[in-house]
Design a protein around this nucleic acid. Sequence first.
DNA 1: GGTTATTGACCTTCTCTGACTTTCATTTTA
DNA 2: TAAAATGAAAGTCAGAGAAGGTCAATAACC
Lengths: 154, 154
Amino acid sequence: MARLSDMIEEFIKTLLEESNGQLELQRNELADYFECAPSQINYVLATRFSLDRGYYIESRRGGGGYIRIIRLDMDNNDYIMYLLKERIGNRISQQAAEDIIYHMLNKGIITERESLIMKAAIQDKGIGIPTNLKDNVRASIMKAMLTAILTLRN
Amino acid sequence: MARLSDMIEEFIKTLLEESNGQLELQRNELADYFECAPSQINYVLATRFSLDRGYYIESRRGGGGYIRIIRLDMDNNDYIMYLLKERIGNRISQQAAEDIIYHMLNKGIITERESLIMKAAIQDKGIGIPTNLKDNVRASIMKAMLTAILTLRN
DNA sequence: GGTTATTGACCTTCTCTGACTTTCATTTTA
DNA sequence: TAAAATGAAAGTCAGAGAAGGTCAATAACC
């Protein structure tokens, strides 16, 4: 018997298919439709539409709130996906991060201006907190920026 | 666009466009037009036409009262210098930083791609350390990125 | 028995309203 | 004519309402 999560996953994927890889939905509406708890939707999003699986989620609370699901183009972005899934873990040094940015510039994934902004954001000086945490913060920031670039390329 | 606030924001921006960046309006009139509470107008002004987003509000109460909305048009380099030297100190909230990035995008100082990268770099989620330090780290990163942009433009 | 799924209670954020306050111009009154 | 009253604005703020988020406890599955 098909599990609820699977059905919701299928449903969302169909919608994504119909809407060119990007869609907005209302959490409560969807939960009503499947007669389940609203938090069930979060579970499906977390387990089936994670970054690892090639999706990016944005949302907004309050009146007029929404959840936006974006399918990322994994095939044309395998280098970035590799960076996100394997190369960058919880920590990364400034040198390593700069090397990655340099490489992305060379491959034409980002512009020179973009490379300068990114380098500024991951500098030791920029981060300005105790050294033992810097590499962790840098890894977070780096991944957040890379994810932003992924959503751009669709 | 479901939200009333967004509709009012759009409306005001159209008026501003037509009137060369400065306009006067009557709060109650506008509230009547949108069939909402007058204080809704204040909410829109506070959240969408803040100083960080590049607008300045003047008003006068009593008979013949008005609200004047002024779009700020500062030289781009001066604006960045103001951000670096005055606006951003040791700490800045995510909302304020996002408003500034939004404003820079509107003024054509940065591209949309650059704005997304910058927003990613200053997200609470991206920074991933104890809350009490986030605003400090964010301020550092923001200033580092702005400095990079400033050097680019010379 | 351990992993995966589901729910519900509680939290956070954003929007919108209404009651109350303040300010200013005009008109009335002593 | 100066002070008081009136009316016409705009401002403030707390609270209700409308979304989505989190997490721990339980249930279902393999």
